[in-house]
């Protein structure tokens, strides 16, 4: 009985060890681990497909999470080759924690828009009659990001620039949660990035906010200090900034750097 336990524990240890070894595996193939902000999810998937056409020997695995979470994971020793942040703040924290090699490069921008739900049956949008960040929001259910998260900081800056006081019914942790609450019709309006509005497709109607173009969120990308394949990592970073990479990002609603 005792021996069987030993065998099981040994097997378990082997499995765990297997999980953490992220070595560039044999057969001349290299695996890049890219830590990318959650908002880059679908866009970077497609960028990777394009990249692999030019670099068939490189495999890419993504870890999509909030930029803050990604920095915390890297501080905790998680192995990454490339870090793409949704804001300058978290890239600065990563640099100060000596997690980054070389200088980061801004590869995309994002601005805020107001979205309102569309009725799934009739296709009619904006039943609450919202026109922008104005009196039309009075008594309506507005959802925004919490000021502590990047999209919320941008929201706060925009509101103060415009001199308006927002009265949200909920301050969400993630911009995708704001989008979800508008898509489901639970909220009457939500402030999200233009990329989220694009991803929501027919489920929402987008209202541009005059002045939002002045509050730009920049996305920096860099090779990590701990990368075991720095040359390949740099080539991925370069590809993201290249014309081909930029074309994909533009398709998903990102602005030029």
């Amino acid at each position: 009985m005792a021996r069987r336990w030993l065998v099981v524990s040994a097997a378990l240890l082997l499995v765990l060890a297997g999980c953490s070894s992220r070595s560039p595996s044999g057969h001349g193939r290299t695996t890049l681990t890219v830590f990318a902000a959650a908002s880059l999810n679908t866009a970077f998937d497609e960028v990777a497909v394009e990249y692999k056409k030019a670099h068939p020997g490189v495999e890419i695995t993504f870890n999509y999470l909030g930029s803050q979470d990604l920095v915390q994971q890297m501080q905790g020793g998680a192995a990454a080759d490339v870090f793409a942040s949704a804001d300058q703040k978290n890239m600065t924290i990563a640099i100060e924690s000596k997690l980054i090699s070389g200088g980061p490069k801004v590869f995309a921008t994002n601005t805020l828009v107001l979205i309102v739900p569309r009725d799934p049956k009739t296709g009619q949008g904006n039943s609450a009659g919202i026109t922008g960040l104005d009196a039309s929001l009075d008594g309506k259910k507005l959802v925004i990001c919490a000021p502590a998260v990047p999209c919320g900081a941008t929201t706060a800056t925009l509101a103060s620039n415009l001199g308006v006081t927002l009265k949200p019914v909920s301050e969400e942790q993630k911009v995708t949660d704001v989008r979800g609450k508008v898509e489901s019709g639970e909220a009457d309006a939500g402030l999200v990035y233009s990329t989220d509005a694009k991803q929501a497709g027919d489920k929402v109607e987008t209202i541009q906010i005059p002045g939002a173009e002045k509050v730009v969120n920049s996305y920096p990308i860099a090779v990590t200090a701990s990368s075991r394949a720095p040359a390949e990592a740099q080539s991925f970073v370069d590809f993201v900034a290249s014309e081909a990479g930029q074309a994909v990002l533009e398709k998903y609603g990102f602005g030029k750097p």
Partner: peptide, 21 residues
């Protein structure tokens, strides 16, 4: 329920948010 201080933001939600900053 969403997350708004004093209305729906319970302890676990507050912890999750505080972790950001």
């Amino acid at each position: 329920a969403g997350s708004l201080q004093g209305t729906t933001r319970t302890m676990p939600l507050e912890i999750y948010l505080q972790r950001e900053t």
